[in-house]
Design a protein around this nucleic acid. Sequence first.
RNA 1: UGGGGUGUCGCCAAGUUGGUAAGGCACAAGGUUUUGAUCCUUGCAUGCGUUGGUUCGAGUCCAGCCACCCCAGCCA
Length: 581
Amino acid sequence: MSASDDSTTNNATSPASNFIRHIIEQDLQSGKHNGRVQTRFPPEPNGFLHIGHAKSICLNFGVADSYGGQCNLRFDDTNPEKESQEYVNAIAEDIRWLGFQWSGDIRYTSSYFDALHDFAVQLIEKGKAYVCSLSPEQAREYRGTLTSPGTDSPYRERSIEENLALFAQMRAGEFPDGAHSLRAKIDMASPNINMRDPVLYRIRHVEHHQTGSKWPIYPMYDYAHCISDAMECVTHSLCTLEFEDHRPLYDWILQTLESKSLSAASDSTRAASDYVLPRQIEFARLNINYTVMSKRKLKELVTENHVNGWDDPRMPTLSGLRRRGFTPESIRNFCERAGVARSAGTVDVGMLEHSIREDLDSNAPRAMCVLRPLKVTLSNYPEDKPQTLVLPCHPKNEAMGTREISFAKTLYIDATDFEEVPPPKYKRLSPRVEVRLRGGYVIRCDEVVKNAAGEVIELLCSYDPETLGVNPVGRKVKGVIHWVPADTALDVEVRIYDRLFNKENPDDKSIADYKECLNPDSLLVLTGCKAEPSLKTAAAEASFQFEREGYFCVDRHDSNAEKIVFNRTVTLRDSWAKISG
RNA sequence: UGGGGUGUCGCCAAGUUGGUAAGGCACAAGGUUUUGAUCCUUGCAUGCGUUGGUUCGAGUCCAGCCACCCCAGCCA
């Protein structure tokens, strides 16, 4: 996708003004970064991407695209204990699926480990970093508290030579985990705890998914991130609000390092004098009600089997939304609509639903599927005269073509479209009342057949042969209901999803454990649903509007020729539900 | 009680140098309709956390106050 042809795409939501775009435009005007815009999306491969990440992806790739820049994909893989190749692969696929293409190859912070190590040596040589031999517990005590300053580590004044030697030994793997750490020498009394001699490197004898067993020491996020940005010549390093307090450290590290060495290690093709440091800018992360958005919790839902995997259609993960039937376009539009600002808020899930309805309304072909079949026999319809009806696939878009469906004596309608004692304003079928079968004839219910338990098991109706494609004269038929022919209908499974949590904010302080408000009815599996025959050849992931029901897609994993499985993406808007309660 | 942030309609969110409150979602009321869908029309903040101040004029400037969020991982 390119920025230039956006204006001709009426469907696309054009980028809204936001404070980050303002900053970039100002920088472009002042020539701060030599007119360049370089961003990056830096996930840690320790879980699947969720819609909160989509906001960041859309932002980073979006601004790069708007201003003729590039966006890198960099895996922030500095903590091998929690990371894996599986996550790397899944994340890359999700980004591609969302519709974005990163600049060049995938990058890894781990591929900068050598450079990062050399920069650490440089800091030691400058007297700006030292090897600390306090245990993690002791370090915590020395750090002080939010309201009281910390205390200098007894190892803070080690000589440069000693630090260099110790760091070399750390790097050589001569010490056990936790024995020492490399710390920046800043200010133990700083009111900003991130500046109280933060740890730069820790000892961890663990395999890394990219570098194997090459390294016994791993850099910390704060140390690695800013340098990685600088090496990739990132101009605007966009991250979420909780990193605000880290910005002074981000700047301190880059400013303490030799600019020319940073330039030399970077992607820059310009002279070292043209080299400009990246600027970190924070924005509010995305929250949506009735769900949780932290990786830790999502992972817990998966490992404790509250859902069926990261791509369970109830999950706010990109793979879950994809399986649910959300399109990349709808998610991008949603992110655009939600906007980017510095105030932390919670977006209503209704906005997400609006975005997918909007997309699918214009792009999903229509079909009929009866979720709770109720047999209807047309008493006056000839036994031996089935006929083929040709219905448009879309009410407004002829280009989407037509599909065929047979009309016969025995049909199924949805049990919810019949009431023996209809409530006020009811526009569906009830005894002695007429209703239009969508795309077919007008029928009237003559008789209700019940079983021994008194349940309605069949309706005996009569059809008006004069009403195919025309309205009857002299009377108004209020309702239109969907149906399928009994003999050729497909037997399908339909999975009805509802919100995963029944509380707006599962993270609210008044709730002890977010899992308390897990919605027990978030998944309803309907078997024996009857779908129109044209759906037989529906491809995996294909979306349809089941008329009067909602949007559904073919499950990309569980659906096959023997057993067709549909997932309900979202219902249609339903003003009747509001009236009827 | 330290530091860093944020407060504009029920929910998001625009608001250049102060000049008289965009848009979307939701909601409501009409119209069209062989989907109670879509679509169309209309309505929806004399008000911008609050109290003062500056000014001819303040959401925009100043001061105080209040509320909420983030930070004490050798996680990111």
